[in-house]
Design a protein around this nucleic acid. Sequence first.
DNA 1: TTGATTATTTATCTTATGTTAAACAGATAG
DNA 2: CTATCTGTTTAACATAAGATAAATAATCAA
Lengths: 187, 187
Amino acid sequence: MDLLFQYFKKYNQLSKEAEEAIAAISSIQQIKKNKDLQPIGHTCKTIYFINKGMARIYYFKDGVDITESFAFENNTLTRVESLFTGKPSRKAIQILEDSELVAISSVKLFELYDRFPEIERLFRRIFEAAYVDTVNRIEGMQFHSAEERYNALLSEAPGVLLRVPLKYISSYLGITQVSLSRIRGMR
Amino acid sequence: MDLLFQYFKKYNQLSKEAEEAIAAISSIQQIKKNKDLQPIGHTCKTIYFINKGMARIYYFKDGVDITESFAFENNTLTRVESLFTGKPSRKAIQILEDSELVAISSVKLFELYDRFPEIERLFRRIFEAAYVDTVNRIEGMQFHSAEERYNALLSEAPGVLLRVPLKYISSYLGITQVSLSRIRGMR
DNA sequence: TTGATTATTTATCTTATGTTAAACAGATAG
DNA sequence: CTATCTGTTTAACATAAGATAAATAATCAA
């Protein structure tokens, strides 16, 4: 759980008791590559933190597999549209490399908020930062060509392209696999 | 401030003292149509609530005016990428109709979080809900044609099309004014 | 290793959307 | 009321990206 508590420090410094309370509602999971960690239709009741490995959130639009987002080590992984609404998610989480995760029960976590305002503050800040990332991503999608979006991804997260099959990346960029291949061929 | 406290109740029921504390750091503003409420480059330190009227958040990409989002009465209006990072915003807020706003000082609000965990919880939930909306919007942008996006807007917020100039709507949808006009002409 | 999947690229053709310019319409100021 | 400005539509043409299919390339299991 060390990496997790290191990560927390960036958002709010927790007391020993608060850390222990979180540890008590968390568990470590080893998940194999390509496994669906949470399927479509499942209501999200877990906040994951990735110690090692990576994952993506995906869904189907007209039968076509679309990657909504990627998540890498040292970051959280959650289907917020389900976590914060309590509704079943139309999306699934797929593990893309053999991974080690910390699974935090969101139900129990939200109960801790009453006893530990510092924990509520911590997660408020974590999700505020994630919200900002999402708003910035909209800007990227609104008026950039596919090529610009590809180049942006290349410079922001060059590692993605080495670790993730291109077919997952193309839908993340909002284009087809064929278009992505064409863009890559241009250089 | 009545509308505002009504709105708060959807997220968290506040005590009388908490409501008063928020009222004490808020003010009512009347803003004329087409005025820039906050300019580009300004660091956002205010959370607005719209009592009456409407506004948009916009920015420039290669000299072209792009609408990031619209906000209507009975909702909040904030440039979160600046509010939560403390950095100057690349975006501006423009008032689109003569409007009445409640302006809440975010600096003072964040101080209230320490005295009133119930206020921190309230705004945590407000922004969690806004975060979910933003995630859902990405889904809409990722793999829908311009026509689908227009029709979606038409059914989700028909009022927008009556109140907002089309030139602002086209960039919101991620297309040119000409394309939007063409799509509208199809029916 | 070999064959069989799965992933990626290439090719051809089609189509949606961008670009530019001009026409038209509606609003606003003098 | 007219002239001007701003917003919207229409037209003609250019281009990026989609669709489909086939060719390679890479991965994986037997």
